[in-house]
Design a protein around this nucleic acid. Structure first.
Lengths: 154, 154
DNA sequence: CCCAGTAATTCGCGTCACGAATTACACAAC
DNA sequence: GTTGTGTAATTCGTGACGCGAATTACTGGG
């Protein structure tokens, strides 16, 4: 052994993050969405957002977001509405089709991720959730996109 | 409560995977590497590989890998050597500069990920590692790239 | 009325990933 | 030893993604 119990945690975190990413990507393919578009839809589930707000939420530069919204709009999943209070601003909202697909994507993602922990007992799942919760709490604020991605299952 | 302890685990796994991804990306920027190039370097740390082998290891199509190796080679971090046993094949190996940078990247990544769990006690870290380890074991084989990414800290 | 600041977009660049078609070689069969 | 047949990589064309710099359109204060 290498004498480091830290290494074990590092490896486990990295590898499990690959599993989660794969689950995300798979769920996206199942719904005909890229992971980015899936995240965009999930971020918009609770309410419409302006481009700048949305950029901060997803951790993207404004110019990057324009393209993502363009592509997603071309598929009819989101729409741009003018902000009544500010002629410069735009609000991005889900279309009906986008809202339905967002729901599907969220469900598909959750299902796949639940499956990952299917081998653990209820108590172990709870412990895992608690430990990871602590870890997240200690590192709050570094994120942004993670929060947006889970605006759903909060 | 929402009646689902599963939801908690799902959320925690997703959010922590975002933290890990962010750590990866940050470590990459610190070393002037894209995450993909970083992974390529890490995969090559133990030994050179052929393109097909490497593609399987990283979960990439052959044609995608060609470009990644091209770009990384342009930066002088890897080199292509002819396979002495097979005139068709190529072996991709780290240059000295690439090996040094791979080491830096690995260290930077591990450091950042260790920091994530800095708020946990030793016993908690061990529990977390064990639970995630079980989760990984149950889901072995779904991965590929995850394994490659950690060829280092095994 | 003018001007500084802000919201988005456009533009040009580079990375990443894929599938289909292609080239070069290996190896077995005849 | 020529002829397949299969395999290793590469090339080509396409598209998503992300960024910074420059631009356009509007707001709001002086």
């Amino acid at each position: 052994m290498d004498g480091g119990e830290k290494t074990g945690v590092v490896t486990a975190l990295v590898r499990s993050s690959f599993l989660v990413n794969a689950a995300y990507a798979e769920a996206g393919r199942e719904c005909g969405l890229t992971p980015q578009q899936g995240q965009l839809l999930c971020a918009l589930m609770p309410q419409p957002y302006g481009m700048s707000e949305l950029g901060a939420l997803l951790g993207l530069a404004r110019s990057s977001l324009t393209g993502l919204v363009d592509r997603t709009m071309r598929r009819g999943l989101v729409r741009r509405e003018p902000d009544p209070r500010d002629g410069r601003a735009v609000r991005v909202a889900l279309t009906d089709e986008g809202a339905a697909l967002a729901e599907d994507f969220r469900a598909a993602t959750c299902r796949r991720i639940e499956e990952l922990s299917a081998g653990l007992g209820a108590a172990e799942r709870a412990t895992l959730a608690e430990l990871l919760g602590r870890l997240l709490q200690e590192n709050a604020g570094r994120d942004n996109a993670g929060r947006a991605a889970n605006r759903n299952s909060s």
